[in-house]
Design a protein around this nucleic acid. Structure first.
Lengths: 127, 127
DNA sequence: CGGCATCCCCCAGGATACTG
DNA sequence: CAGTATCCTGGGGGATGCCG
């Protein structure tokens, strides 16, 4: 938004709010984006399929997040010229690479359900 | 909030909004939580150190997110009985495990700065 | 079916200030 | 220095409706 040209890529840092790196990171580090990347996996899914597979996401957020991922080159969008419309989504190579590490977080979550639950009980017990 | 007892761990699914897995995942899948985990790394840092290392985070969000991570058993909190107060934060074993994959996302971001920038230019060019 | 625009509400989260 | 509490605003995000 503000004009801030000629930024040296070397000083791009995730922890600098005004850096490109931080901005890209922030756009990905939210549950809907990560879930979409995870659910897409290696598949090619159409809009409605994603919508049904990702419980709780609104029509609007799905569209919006998919646009964002497409713009950042994580998702390819294929529009079939037919009625009714059919639009397919697929992870790009870069998207696939991200998916690999996102799956790590998903896996971690599933493996630590009990750990977290126990920690919460302990924490809540001591106020 | 709603009483939903006796949930079979087997049907815990990240994509079910009312599942424990989704709730835990959602609490972690946001930029501040991930950045804190990343910045903490293997170090032991006090509140102020975190605050200065993570540009842009407010006092309130840092406290709040640290509490959340502590409650979920990702962060250990050490309060030194002294004046002025000194509070140290350190990743638990579970936190370290998560950090490994979070670093993957951070690394991915840094490696794909150019890719994303180019994709954005292409996207914006075609409207 | 999928996209986009509109309306609108709620709360995430920033700013500020007071304690121990 | 660290934590908690209060206030207040912006925009995230849901609901709805209309197009191609």
């Amino acid at each position: 938004m503000t004009d801030r040209p000629m930024r040296d890529p070397a000083d791009e840092d995730l922890t600098r709010v005004d850096s490109l790196a931080h901005e890209i990171f922030a756009g990905i580090a939210n549950k809907w984006a990560l879930l979409i990347v995870n659910v897409l996996g290696k598949d090619t899914l159409r809009f409605t399929e994603l919508h049904t597979r990702i419980d709780g996401i609104s029509h609007k957020m799905l569209t919006q997040t998919l646009r964002h991922l497409e713009r950042d080159g994580l998702v390819d969008r294929f529009v079939h010229a037919q009625i009714p419309p059919r639009v397919d989504y697929h992870l790009t190579t870069a998207g696939q690479e991200l998916r690999a590490t996102v799956n790590g977080i998903c896996g971690w979550t599933r493996r630590h359900l009990d750990h977290v639950e126990a920690a919460r009980n302990r924490f809540d017990a001591g106020q």
